[in-house]
Amino acid sequence: MAMAAALRREGRRLAQPINALQSHTSLISQDQAPHGARSISTQIVRNRMKSVKNIQKITKAMKMVAASKLRAVQTRAENSRGLWQPFTALLGDNPSADVKKSVIVTISSDKGLCGGINSTSVKISRVLHKLNSGPDRVTKYVILGEKAKAQLVRDSKKDIELSLTELQKNPLNYTQVSVLADDILKNVEYDALRVVFNKFHSVVSFLPTVSTVLSPEAIEKEAEAGGKLGELDSYEIEGGETKSEILQNLAEFQFSCVMYNAVLENACSEQGARMSAMDSSSRNAGEMLDRLTLTYNRTRQASITTELIEIISGASALTG
């Protein structure tokens, strides 16, 4: 993002005048101003104060934007939780299912400046990848969002199968996410899809979450092994469909519902994280501004005092 780069550049530029300023003040205190210099120019400090003030304005505005976006997306995310809950009640969540082909769907944001939510989901994905890779087990990544892509390209670009971006151009809706889920299903081979996202808990807390969607074959295998899925046989199937057909439809629909919820929850966490990040950065800018104002005033005071002393001593030399 251009703004992030600008902020970073600003920060680097700012780092230097601080030292320059300190050396100036130390010069004053030792009374060793460069030869012929009457007073120190406060231009640099004034410019910096102006730029810090501008940055503070920007971060405040970004916080407001994030807050209003958060409110819109939060209700949608909370409503969408009703979509995956029935599936979990019916099929259960099987994060420990032992399968050959896993696909990790990492969900992240396209834009930065939102704290650590993207690195959290990338970290969780890496752990899952490590847990699920072995001699005869293949694990691939499907990546949503620019930020996770940028992080995962560095060390595991061989394992990336698909990457999807520009999700949030329009407001998120089910049709979009289902088309996306469809594209993922068509392009990867999987026994288990593990969706990694940040579940929105409150504005300041996000739980990194993994939802597992098993393929129909994997469900049947788990059902034979017993446990919660063993109860599947007690359901009666209406119509002329076979159990495997039903399971395949269910798995596909489950995936699109889980994806819908995950994308919304992650968007919600992103806005929340951005809000708190921008809040703390505008507070930081305020503190910096306070410090700068203090230095600026002190320097100004010192130069005034020096001038006064010069005038008075000059006058007394004339009269005396």
């Binding site: 520009e166 329009n170 088309v179 996306l180």
Partner: peptide, 26 residues
């Protein structure tokens, strides 16, 4: 108008992304 689809998808072959295809109905 609520249900708009827009995203871009790129497949990766041998650690390199292919040209992204944009799925959009706008």
């Amino acid at each position: 108008s609520r249900e708009k689809v827009h995203f871009s998808l790129s497949k990766w072959v041998d650690g390199k992304p292919e040209k992204p295809t944009v799925r959009s109905d706008t």
